[in-house]
Simulated assay, not measured.
Amino acid sequence: MEITITKTKVLKPKPDDSKLGFGSIFTDHMLNVDYEPEKGWHNPRIEPYAPFEMDPATMVLHYGQAVFEGLKAYRTASGSVQLFRAKDNFTRLNQSSRSLCIPEIDEAFLMDSLKQLLEIEKDWIPKAPGTSLYVRPTIIATDPYLGVRASNTYRYFVILSPVGAYYAAGFNPVKIWVTKSHVRAVRGGVGEAKTPANYAASLYAGEQATKSGYAQVLWLDGVEQKYIEEVGSMNIFFVIDDEITTPMLNGSILPGITRNSVLALAKHWGMKVSERKITIDEVMQAHESGKLQEIFGSGTAAVISPVGEMKYGDKVITVSDGKVGPIANKLFKTIQDIQYGKAEDPMSWIETV
C-alpha cells in the first residue's frame, strides 16, 4: 500500500523538553488506515492530527472492540532515531487482534508506515536525557451498529506524543497493595490481549490503592485468588534466594515486551531465572525467612519499577530495605542504555529509523 501524505499548514509549537509530562501533548500528524471486507486494509494516509467524526452508534463505543500498543522512539547522542523491539510490538498487536476478531495487518507495512510517520515528525523527538517520543498504534471497530457481533469495518491509527522521563523525582521504589476484592482478568478471557477493557477493569482497585497511599495494585488470579499475575499495568518480578522469578504466561497475563527483555538479559548474564506459578503466600514466607531480596515491575513507560513496600491484608513488608535493588538497577540502566544507543545491543532489538 502506498501512503499518501498531507502535511498540516500550521505547525504546533514544540514543547520544552524539561517540562514534558506523559500523554498530554501530541504531534502535528497522524497515520490513518481503513478496513472494509471487500477492500481489506486500504487508504493509508499521513495527515494532520485531528479529531475523529464518529456515529453515536459506532461499535467501539458500545462493545469495546479495540486493541492498541505502546512503544517509544529514542534520540541518541549522535542525533539518530531508533526504536526498541518495535517488531515485537506489531507481532503482539496482531495477536491481540486475533483475540478480538479484528483483521490482522501486514507487519512489514506497520513498520514501514511508522518509520514514514516518524520521518515527518522527527523534530518532535525530544533530546533531553530520559525523554522520548511515545508511539500509540490503535485499532478500533467502526461499524455504526447496536448489536453484539464483530464489526465489519475498522480504523488503524497511530498518534505520537513527546514524553518526559517517567521518574520525574528519580528512580525510586514504589509501594504496592495486594487486593483480594478485585480481579483484572481470568484465563479464557482477553487478559493476555492489549485491549482497553483490561485497563478499564483495573481502574476501581487502582483508585482504592491510591486513596490508601499505594502506587499500584498487585493482582492475584481471578479463580483461586492466590497466584500472582501482574502489578498495575506491568509485569512483576521477584528475586528470591538469588533467583529471578516471574509469573508464567497463562492466558490472563499480558506477554510484556519489557518482561521478555528482562528474562533475556538475565539469562544472557547467567542469572537463575524461572517462569512459573508463584503464590502471594510464597512471597510473604520468603520475606519472613529473609530470602526475598527484590520486587520490581516491568513495562514500556517505566522500564523497571522497583518496589520498596508491599501490603497484603494487615501485613506490610519492606523490600530491599526500601531501596532500589542491584538487579532492578542493573536491568533499568542496561535497557535504557540500549534504547538510547549508549550500550551494545546483544539481542538485535534496535530498529533504526
Rank of each mutant, 00 (worst) to 15 (best):
F90P: 15
H29T: 12
A77T: 06
P44H: 04
T245Y: 00
I159Q: 05
T195C: 08
I327E: 00
A86S: 09
I139P: 04
Y63R: 05
T195D: 03
L249F: 10
E243W: 00
K122A: 02
W124Y: 07
E53S: 14
G164T: 11
I236E: 03
V223G: 13
M347N: 12
N235T: 06
L265E: 03
T4S: 13
G322N: 05
I295S: 05
E288R: 13
K175A: 07
W269Y: 07
A193V: 01
N152W: 15
L61A: 09
I350F: 08
Q216E: 11
V231Q: 01
S161W: 03
Q285F: 15
G256E: 11
A168E: 11
I125V: 08
S348D: 14
S298K: 00
Q285L: 15
V307D: 08
D106E: 10
D106P: 09
I120E: 07
I350K: 09
K180F: 11
V283I: 10
G164I: 08
K315T: 11
M234N: 02
Y154C: 01
N250H: 11
E207S: 13
S161L: 02
V307N: 07
L117W: 09
L220E: 00
H287D: 02
Y227N: 10
A165S: 11
P56L: 03
V273Y: 06
P306A: 10
P162N: 02
D16A: 12
P13W: 00
I304E: 10
M54N: 08
V10N: 10
G21V: 09
T27I: 07
I244P: 05
E294M: 00
A286L: 01
E36I: 12
D314N: 15
I3G: 00
D28A: 06
V67I: 08
K127M: 14
V273C: 04
D106Q: 06
D112E: 13
T138W: 09
E282M: 07
K180V: 12
C101A: 12
E47G: 13
I244C: 01
W349D: 02
Y156D: 01
R98T: 14
A108L: 14
E47T: 14
L146A: 10
E107D: 07
T27D: 03
T27K: 07
A286Q: 00
I5K: 07
Q216N: 05
D345Q: 03
E344S: 12
D321V: 06
E104H: 09
V231S: 02
A343E: 10
M248I: 13
M271N: 07
V135N: 05
T258R: 01
K115C: 12
Q225P: 02
I317T: 04
P51A: 03
Q225R: 09
Y340D: 03
G270E: 00
K291F: 03
V239G: 05
E69L: 01
P56E: 03
G79K: 00
P15Y: 03
G21P: 13
I257R: 00
G213Y: 02
V174S: 12
K330H: 14
R149M: 04
K127N: 15
H182Q: 10
T76D: 06
G299F: 09
I327Y: 01
